[in-house]
Structures are given as structure tokens and as C-alpha cells.
């Protein structure tokens, strides 16, 4: 059997783009969650360290 790459329709491409944006937003939200969680659990002193 030979593999035939599936040709995406414009609608499928648009839906894929929306899914990609959604994944990006979720990842950004995760970054924000871990940031505020760190501050909330450890306090602002976590930022105060000798360089």
C-alpha cells in the first residue's frame, strides 16, 4: 500500500489553526499558573536572592 498524504481542505486548515491557538493559550495559562503558584506558596521573598 502506498501512502497518500491527506490533502487538508481550507476548513480543516482553519480548524487546525484554531486548535493550535487554543493549545498555545493553554500553555501560556500553565506558565502563569506555575508562576503565581510559586509566589503564593513561597512568598515574594523567592524573588529576593543574591545574584
Amino acid at each position: 500500500m502506498s501512502a497518500v498524504p491527506k490533502q487538508l481542505t481550507p476548513e480543516e486548515i482553519q480548524r487546525r489553526r484554531k486548535r493550535s491557538v487554543a493549545i498555545a493559550l493553554v500553555l501560556a495559562a500553565l506558565v502563569a499558573i506555575f508562576y503565581v503558584l510559586t509566589i503564593a506558596k513561597l512568598g515574594p521573598q523567592v524573588l529576593n536572592r543574591p545574584l
Binding site: 500500500m1 502506498s2 497518500v4 491527506k6 476548513e11 480548524r15 484554531k18 486548535r19 487554543a22
Partner: peptide, 17 residues
Amino acid sequence: DRPFVEAQSSGGEVADY
């Protein structure tokens, strides 16, 4: 009618997920 199709990706909307 296609001989082989790559692993089917979703055509789903974000709302479907």
C-alpha cells in the same frame, strides 16, 4: 476510495474538545 490514509487527525473544533 483512498488506498491508505495517514493516521487520521481530528477535524474537530476547539468547542468539540
